[in-house]
Simulated scan of single mutants.
Amino acid sequence: MKKILYTKGRNYQIIDNKKKVCEVFYYKWYSEKASGIYNLDRIQFFISGVINQNVTILKNDQPIGTIKYNLRGYMVLNIKDENGAEKTYFLKIKTVWRFRIEVFDEQNNMCFIMHSYGKWYKAYNNFKIEELASTNTNINELLVYCAYAANWFINIAVSAS
């Protein structure tokens, strides 16, 4: 079973069958910059833009993707794979309290669902991953990006209230 576990604040780990696959750390408690190591590749996230904020994703200091928030309640994740082909995923936020994120690919096939669990009063709950369809992308690497997107959504929701 795959999980996303929050360790301290917004820092998180991707767990696959009780084995830590990746851990992502935020630079400071108020910062949106984060980085982690996945399969010996350094993955970094940072916010770019002032009005239309996007998250830029770097892998070994090379830009490989973006995360964009849409006011209709979903996020768009664009990622380049190892061959340079761009893939698009849609993260649809379904509920706010016990919230659930459904991840779809370009053909509108649901890839997996991120179910939050934990204490209701904690800002960052852990996620259990329900895999549905096989994707051509490494699911664990995709979870690293989706977990950052979930954190970013929580920060947007908290700052809007």
Rank of each mutant, 00 (worst) to 15 (best):
Y117E: 06
T88I: 09
I51Y: 01
M114N: 14
Y117R: 05
K119I: 04
Y124D: 02
Q107W: 03
E131C: 06
L77E: 01
F127G: 05
K33W: 00
W97A: 08
I129P: 04
L71R: 13
I51E: 01
R42W: 00
N125W: 15
P63N: 11
W29S: 06
E106W: 11
T95D: 13
Y124Q: 03
C111D: 08
V50L: 14
N52P: 04
Y27H: 12
Q53M: 02
E130Q: 14
D61N: 15
K128D: 10
N78W: 06
V76M: 13
R42A: 01
Q53C: 01
R42D: 01
F90V: 14
N54Y: 09
G49F: 08
Q107P: 00
G73Y: 10
Q53I: 01
E131Q: 12
M110H: 06
V103P: 10
E130V: 10
F104V: 05
A34Y: 02
I129F: 05
N60H: 09
V96A: 12
D61T: 10
V103N: 09
N52D: 08
N109S: 14
A85P: 01
L71Q: 09
P63L: 08
L91Y: 09
Y124R: 04
I43M: 07
I64G: 12
Y69F: 15
V55H: 05
S116Q: 15
N126K: 13
V76Y: 09
S31D: 15
L58V: 02
L40I: 03
T56Q: 05
Y89W: 03
Q53F: 00
G36H: 03
K119G: 01
Y124N: 05
Q44V: 00
Y38I: 08
T66H: 15
T88N: 06
E32C: 02
A133K: 13
K92Y: 03
Y27A: 06
W29D: 05
S48W: 01
N60V: 06
V55Y: 01
A34C: 02
I129K: 09
I79L: 07
N54G: 07
A34S: 04
M114G: 11
A123Y: 11
L58Y: 08
V55L: 05
K94P: 02
M110K: 12
S116E: 11
N109K: 14
K59V: 02
N78I: 07
F46M: 15
R42Y: 00
K33P: 00
Q107V: 04
L58S: 02
N60Y: 05
T56P: 00
K80V: 02
V96L: 12
E106H: 12
V103Y: 10
V50G: 07
Y124G: 01
V76D: 11
V76E: 14
P63E: 10
Y38D: 06
Y69G: 14
Y121H: 14
L40C: 01
V76W: 08
K87R: 11
G36W: 08
F99D: 13
G118E: 08
F46H: 15
E86L: 10
I57E: 02
